[in-house]
Design a protein around this nucleic acid. Structure first.
Lengths: 391, 391
DNA sequence: CCCAATTAGTTTGATGCCTGAACTTATCGA
DNA sequence: TCGATAAGTTCAGGCATCAAACTAATTGGG
């Protein structure tokens, strides 16, 4: 029960600053008066809060509002495009990716570099890649408010506990690279990117089949992390308890039965491109391979839907490309196994984002972190009350 | 993003009142000075908050502290045993139960009444039962701060969406009985009771096998409710996708494979008492029936453990009685199917509470609700600022 | 027996943030 | 040009916390 901190006026400030900033982010092109109405705060309070946010360059004043009828026009305030940017880095098994986004979430720069990261040299390489991305931001003349790193593994409070495909165990990136980051699992970041920039669903499971099967679960517009940050590990859900052995030691795990490798094997395809063209030409073997995988995926996902009561499934990664063939059999299996479909159907949608979802989520999480607690950013990045505004 | 309310000084007050009260509940026999140290608030603030709580009879001053060394002795403050009590009602299929607890969680009165509740007369019966329980509280001279009702079904924001065993669908108890209640699923209340009065684990799945298989999931000392309150519905998790058909239409659901009915059938026993004596005498059929069920339970629970990252399983209800025979095979299956057991083992423990867990949770939830927001209780039950203190 | 040291709890003035109301600024329509 | 309407600012007032001074109670040593 201990763990809650005492509250004071500063708490009120933090809360209201975040509230106002959230309203600004939500409704682009709102005036101070509109914000007051949206948040329930007084015009006076909104004004003082907005002034602070402008001083920190998190928010910028725009054109006067266009409106019919009498009365003074409000001045529009919106997220400042020159405010703190978010830098995302993704450490894949065979590539590094970076992404720079401005406070509104718009991508300003992007880069991918292929290289085998299963060597001890990764850290040097990441460090150089990060330096380069920072230079890029500098060239654009924008400040970097923080760095988010996506890794294909289990992350617990900033520490990479286990990343089998990278051969990592208990790796502290902050320590290795001499800097602090927002580190998280790539599937989680991808789910967040989907939340912020994709289909506007508030609750969903984002499932992506790459080498493993990763899922990010979003409940009430927030990532579900579980107790130790390992929430949503669906790769080894048992979907065929008497099935073939999986590398993890158990039998018939989802990853073993519906992973990319198994689908390609069943379809007799070399690559995903191969598989897709086979599917497009109506190849029976390919279609039945995907249908079989969809069934297993349905068993696994029905579990998630029943247990967490999430009303939607978003297909990302490789599954997004296979969506036309996965969708029907998956939906059928879900309807069979989820009792609540009787009164509220489960939606299955294809991710609107491509392969860059994870990096984009990593970059976006930096922005979201600042938006969620602007006062914190303000005090850490704007140390003295410098009124250095050109006015 | 909208949905957050503006904060003011009153918010601070609410927060700190709850903080202080929480500290009082946690550490029985603390002084104001101790509370200041525990909460991080000033002695002055603690004093004013405690004075308000005493005025509302949520807290009472006790004996002077016993301590060695110099200095004035503090006056101990603790939850007032004459403060608002919680009344819990459980609507079972064939019984009604009530439970009255004082602010410290001690049971002050209890009653069970057997009757078939699958008739339209239930509501009258519940109403009468509730009236009787209220009279009991009156006889004890204690105020009732609220009523919690446990039902064997799916509850969504106070509405009983579905209770198959009672034949209910979209039943609004508040409307039927002309009163407002805290309504929730019995499994969830049982899990909360386990949290508050049982093994002091902060994160666990409480699973109880009665007629169906219900689970309450507690994460970080809070109930996990899912999006629409249907979180933790594990009865129809697929544990043997090619197994025998279940009443829900799917195949090999957990309830079908490891429910009480199936265990009794496999063991050839008439009742749970029967089964237990067979197990105690080492009957092979009985032991293997329970072992088989444990395996299926392990498959289902491994899902929960993997997905939610919960490190402990609490066996309640009928499973608590079978724990000596369930434990080993269940643990083995979990270890096989949960990758994270490699670095942090899953605990399997037997519920410390008996059959009354759900009612007790219902009653306790009333108390917890008041403790979590004492200012709210104070303003609703102590309308005018009456300084009706004998002083 | 008295006094210094120590700890509990209260009183008081200062601070900070929000609010409400009055006020200034801006725009439309007649 | 004036009245109505709406945006945004200014300022006194309220309220909850905090820091520090102060009172109260208790021990132990001279």
């Amino acid at each position: 029960m201990i763990g809650t901190r005492p509250a004071g006026q500063h708490t009120v400030r933090q809360h209201n600053a975040a509230l106002v900033l959230g309203a600004i982010a939500d409704g682009p092109g709102t005036s101070r008066a509109g914000l007051a109405a949206a948040t329930g705060l007084t015009k006076a309070t909104v004004s003082t809060v907005v002034d602070r946010l402008i001083a920190a360059d998190l928010v910028a004043e725009g054109e006067p509002e266009q409106r019919v009828g009498p009365g003074r026009r409000g001045t529009v305030v919106s997220l400042s495009p020159t405010g703190p940017h978010g830098l995302g880095i993704e450490i894949g098994v065979d590539y590094l990716a970076s992404c720079l986004v401005d406070p509104t979430g718009t991508v300003r720069a992007q880069e991918v570099r292929y290289a085998d990261n299963r060597t001890p040299r990764v850290f040097q390489r990441v460090s150089a890649f990060l330096r380069k991305a920072r230079k890029q931001a500098e060239a654009l003349g924008v400040p970097v408010g923080g760095v988010g790193i996506a890794v294909p593994g289990l992350v617990e409070s900033g520490l990479v506990r286990l990343a089998p495909n990278l051969g990592w165990r208990d790796v502290d990136l902050a320590d290795r690279l001499g800097e602090t980051f927002t580190v998280a699992n790539e599937a989680n970041f991808a789910a967040l990117a989907e939340l912020w920039h994709g289909s506007a669903l508030p609750d969903f499971v984002h499932v992506s089949g790459e080498i493993g099967i990763g899922a990010g679960i979003v409940l009430d517009r927030a990532l579900f992390e579980g107790v130790r940050g390992a929430g949503g590990e669906i790769g080894h859900l048992p979907v065929a308890p008497d099935g073939p052995p999986c590398s993890c030691g158990a039998n018939g795990c989802l990853e073993r039965m519906a992973g990319q490798e198994e689908i390609l094997r069943l379809a007799g395809a070399e690559s995903v491109d191969d598989l897709v063209s086979a599917l497009e030409s109506g190849d029976d073997t390919a279609v039945s391979a995907v249908t079989t995988a969809a069934g297993h995926l349905g068993v696994g996902l029905s579990t998630v839907v029943n247990l967490m009561d999430v009303p939607a499934v978003v297909l990302g990664g490789t599954y997004a490309r296979l969506e036309p063939w996965l969708r029907e059999p998956l939906l059928a299996e879900l309807e069979r196994r989820v009792p609540s479909t009787a009164w509220s159907p489960v939606r299955v949608v294809r991710s609107a984002l491509g392969t860059g979802a994870a990096v984009r989520g990593a970059a976006g999480s930096v922005i979201r972190g600042i938006l969620a607690d602007p006062e914190h950013y303000l005090t850490t990045h704007w140390p003295s009350d410098q009124d250095a505004q050109g006015h």
